[in-house]
């Protein structure tokens, strides 16, 4: 999966979590989307299952926006 597809997948997953508005790639996971730890954890588990990779916890220290998450996950798929 390329970066754009990963980004699209993440956006559709977040939208399915009942967010009220369309998800902007530059939206902050906390401040704009108000995602909770449990939801982010579910999203990460879903990405791991879909992409067949392990996503280490520590990437969440660098992830602020939806795009950041897509970049980190894409980098990990390249390292697989």
């Amino acid at each position: 999966m390329n970066r754009e597809k990963i980004l699209e997948y993440i956006i559709s997953s977040i939208e399915s979590m009942d967010t009220d508005e369309a998800v902007d790639p530059e939206a902050s996971l906390i401040d704009d989307l108000g995602l909770e730890s449990l939801q982010i954890y579910e999203l990460i588990a879903e990405l791991e299952a879909v992409l067949g990779i392990r996503i280490p916890e520590k990437i969440l220290m660098r992830v602020d926006t939806v795009e950041d998450l897509a970049d980190e996950v894409y980098r990990l798929t390249g390292e697989k």
């Binding site: 902050s28 996971l29 906390i30 401040d31 995602l35 730890s37 982010i40 916890e57 520590k58 969440l60 220290m61 660098r62 992830v63 602020d64």
Partner: peptide, 13 residues
């Protein structure tokens, strides 16, 4: 460093 990331809040929790 951006400290307003979910990881930082989780670490405090």
């Amino acid at each position: 460093i951006n400290k307003n990331v979910i990881g930082m809040w989780d670490a405090l929790k």
